[in-house]
């Protein structure tokens, strides 16, 4: 465990917990894409199939349980909680899961480290994670008005991506057999998707104005 990996995990954890806490406290999910949240729940469910078969560390197991629990809680709040679901921008959040899930599944069947159920699902989760933010970015574009917490949520996710890339670079040079092409390429694609958002986020922060995305 290096400092970049830890910082990446912590910003990832914070992004999910900030969102869950926001929804729980103000009983609103305005500006949050349910499609993206459902895709993340699917990402964690398919990636952590090894949770009971491969023990890595107590840290690893606990983090997996927190990610699974918090992502499914967010989906539950947005779909089932009678106050929260009323604030959901259903008409604006029109991205189809199918268009992201199917190509990722096909890609995972072709490109994986080993053709086993667990490895195909692992690859699928990496590909899906790379693009799962798209419905959220589309929703941000449409609603224009981005409150601080939604902005912070996407910012923390972007920070997590950046730290993970530093972690891979660090591990590449410090661990002799550390080569994971699938992880790196899908991770890089995911980070690039945030670059555009970051540009506007930093501009609004620098000029101390409310975040607005262009049409």
């Amino acid at each position: 465990m290096n400092i970049f990996r830890l910082a990446g995990d912590m910003t990832h954890l914070m992004s999910v917990l900030v969102l869950l806490l926001k929804i729980h406290t103000i009983k609103s999910c305005a500006g949050i894409s349910l499609k993206t949240q459902e895709l993340y729940a699917l990402v964690f469910a398919t990636r952590y199939l090894d949770i009971f078969t491969d023990f890595i560390s107590v840290y690893n197991t606990i983090m997996k349980l927190i990610f699974l629990g918090s992502s499914f809680s967010i989906v539950w709040y947005m779909r089932r909680h009678k106050l929260v679901r009323r604030s959901y921008d259903k008409e604006q959040d029109t991205f189809r899961h199918f268009f992201l899930v199917l190509p990722c599944l096909l890609l995972a069947l072709v490109m994986n480290e080993k053709f086993t159920f667990k490895e195909v699902m692992w690859a699928f989760s990496l590909y899906l994670e790379a693009v799962a933010i798209l419905p959220q970015l589309v929703l941000l574009q449409r609603t224009k008005n981005i409150d601080n917490l939604t902005g912070q949520y996407v910012f923390l996710l972007g920070a997590y991506r950046a730290f993970y890339i530093f972690n891979w670079i660090y591990r590449y040079f410090t661990e002799p057999h550390y080569v994971h092409w699938i992880t790196w390429i899908s991770g890089l694609v995911q980070t690039l998707l945030y670059a555009d958002f970051f540009y506007y986020y930093f501009n609004s922060w620098k000029n101390n104005v409310k975040l607005h995305l262009p049409a």
């Binding site: 560390s57 983090m63 480290e113």
Partner: peptide, 10 residues
């Protein structure tokens, strides 16, 4: 590290 690859990242 072992030869059997395990995914140790989240």
């Amino acid at each position: 590290s072992s030869t059997e690859k395990v995914h140790d990242e989240l």
